[in-house]
Each structure stands twice: as structure tokens, then as C-alpha cells.
Amino acid sequence: MHGESLVEIPDKKHKSAFASIPSGFNMANFLVSSVHDMKNSVSLLICGLDKVLTSAEAAKLSSHAELVQMNHEAKRINNRLIQLLTLYKLGQKIYPFDPQYVCLDDFLRTIVAQYTQLLEFHGVQIEVRVNPDLYWYFDEDLISGVIGSAVNNTMRFARHRILLSAAECDGKLMLRVEDDGDGYPAEFLEKNSNVMQSVDFHGGSTGLGLYFSAMAARMHRNQGMQGDLCLENGGALRGACFVLRLP
């Protein structure tokens, strides 16, 4: 939202406005409107970098590697901001949950297209396995955030390959993000039995991505069933597996 005016205070009244913060002052409003504002800037940043990187001369630049990495970091920030906004809305019970029938083939390809260049750079190959006729009913934006954040995570640990797959399994859609890395540490998998408790603000990982993913999975319900999330080791590439199941 351009020109979001919640935090804009006219210059002339700067001091007095701050001296008398209205009684309705709400830190959450400032945070939310700032996140919106940041999202707009990050969007432009991403589009700008995308443009530079798709140009023919880009690969010849000495700073090409740095640009690719910058683009990736900007996308990470964008994903994080979306997750924060979404969680805020879920908390306020105003998230516009909007499931639709989605073609999984298109869905996964669109996600993968964002990471191809970076992965190529790191010598990691990403592969999609899905039946082109597979359709499922879910909130595309939410789940794209979940899978995107899983791919983001897995690319730090994959050696040579990442595999994204979707298939129907026992009346549910099973989405898997797998790699050929060392897999999740044992203590992480133990804690994983309750993803919601794994948020650790003091540790290196905020757990935001996992928390977001678990919330997004749970939003999906059908005929008494609920979506869920599970982390495991093994799978087709003998590494870490991020498994999302949606009813």
C-alpha cells in the first residue's frame, strides 16, 4: 500500500505530535504499517534485481555472484515479512483464507522458478516430480509461502540435489521438499513433535518459518481432517524431508 499514512506525521507538527501520542496509540499499528512499507520497498528491490539478472550482460559482471546472493536475500526478507503479516492477521482473525483448486504442476514450477538461478550458482540441481493432472484445494498464497520457506531452508543444507514432489496419499495431498544433505539433527526431530513450541528467540533460528508452516497447515480442514506438518530424515535423496499434508 503506497503512502500508508498511519505513521506519517506532518513535518511542522513533528514535535508536538510526538509529545502527545494519542491515547489510542498501538505499537502493533506501527509495526504492521512499517512492515507494509518495507514490503513495498523490498518488492521494488526484487523486481530491480530480477531485471538486472535477466539481462544478457549480467553473467559477465564481476559482481554477478553478489547480485544473485542479494536477490536471494531480498526474497528471504520478503517471505519473512509476508509471514509476519499473515501471522498477525491470523492472530487478529482477519486473515482472508481463500482456498481454490490449484494445479500442482504450475504451483511447484512457479516456486522453483524463483530459486533456479541461485541454485545453479551453487551447483545444486532442483527437480519437480508431480502428475500434471494433479489438482488440490488449498490457499495458494499460504502454501506457496510454506513451500518457499522450506526450499529456502533446504538450499543451505543440500549438497547437489533438491526434490520437490506432490502426490495424493490416503485422501490427502502430500507435498515433500527433500534434499541430499545430512538431514535434521536428532534433537531437532525430537522437538518437532510439537512444532508450535519450537520458537526459540534466543537461539539462532527464530522458528518463525516452521511456526508459520504449522499454522498454515492447520488452517486447512475438510470433513473432520486437518492439515499437518512433519519433518523427517531419509526419503528419496537420503537427506532432510519437509512433509506437508493437506486434507
Binding site: M1, S43, I46
Partner: peptide, 23 residues
């Protein structure tokens, strides 16, 4: 810029064909 139902507040005949989120 973000997913919101505000955008779809109009009646069906005045809805766009689709939405795209930035970026």
C-alpha cells in the same frame, strides 16, 4: 501488496479475473 478481502468487496460482476501479489 498483500492478500486482503477488501479487494474482493465488490459484487461478483465487478470482480477482476485474478489477483497477483507483489512482487
Amino acid at each position: 501488496a498483500e492478500k486482503t478481502v477488501d479487494a474482493v468487496a465488490g459484487t461478483a460482476e465487478y470482480q477482476p479475473d485474478t489477483y497477483l501479489l507483489k512482487p
